[in-house]
């Protein structure tokens, strides 16, 4: 499934807004970005499963036109593009948004055409499904890590390097005590990461093909005819 890269899920949502409304919403987004109003993003921060997310509002004249041969876009609406990277399933993400920051969502999609409001959930789900666009290729530098792993790993590294320099010349008994304090400090950050059961269906297919190729190679090496070759490899 190309929307998934290990623990990360890629969501793409493209929704229309009246052009004059889009101009107003851009001002609203600008206001949200100002430090004095940064509290309005606090709800997003509580959704700790998000790696990175962005909104972009594109007016009809702002679609890139690189050449005279390319027809000019003639659109009635401006479009809001939303791209998010998060951990968990589609339903978990959409429901979390709806439950945790309904007013924030209503602000971020303020008067988008057809926006049903974040609550109740069912119309909101339908709106997202209707306007979602599929990803064709998705890459994560750390498919085995959730956003919380990346954040906790930063804390582990900082605490570990500080501990190492602090305890360099300590007596054994004092070291043991400091070590136990370190574990106490990091207890919420220590965990072993692992692949999700199926990183992605495409990846599972690749692994299956490699397994079949390896088996076929073993059989050829032993002088027997291969039983069945993985079809996709030969294409």
């Amino acid at each position: 499934m190309p929307n998934i890269a290990g623990k990360a899920f890629a969501m793409n949502l493209i929704t229309p807004i009246e052009r004059w409304q889009a101009a107003f919403n851009k001002i609203q987004f600008w206001a949200i970005r100002q430090p004095i109003l940064s509290f309005s993003l606090r709800g997003l921060v509580t959704l700790s499963m998000i790696h990175y997310a962005r909104w972009a509002i594109v007016q009809p004249t702002e679609w890139p036109r690189l050449d005279e041969s390319q027809p000019k876009e003639k659109l009635h609406y401006a479009y809001q593009l939303f791209f998010s990277n998060f951990n968990g399933s589609w339903a978990q993400y959409v429901d979390s948004f709806s439950v945790a920051i309904p007013s924030g969502l209503n602000l971020l999609w303020f008067r988008n055409v057809g926006w049903p409001k974040a609550v109740p959930e069912q119309p909101f789900h339908r709106y997202v499904e209707h306007n979602e666009v599929w990803t064709s290729h998705y890459y994560s530098a750390y498919p085995m890590a959730a956003s919380n792993d990346v954040k906790s790993a930063q804390r582990v590294k900082q605490a570990l390097t500080s501990f190492a320099s602090r305890t360099k010349d300590m007596e054994a008994a004092a070291f043991e005590q400091a070590y136990n304090e370190l574990l106490n400090e990091l207890q919420a950050d220590l965990s072993q990461m692992a692949p999700t059961p199926i990183v992605s269906l495409a990846n599972a297919a690749v692994e299956e093909r490699m397994r079949q190729d390896a088996e076929a190679g073993d059989e050829q090496d032993s002088g027997r005819a291969p039983a069945m070759m993985g079809g996709s490899h030969a294409e």
Binding site: F29, H51, Y52, W55
Partner: peptide
């Protein structure tokens, strides 16, 4: 295209 808002929930 310029983003109107970019959110970093990671590092």
């Amino acid at each position: 295209v310029e983003n109107t808002l970019y959110f970093n929930g990671s590092t």
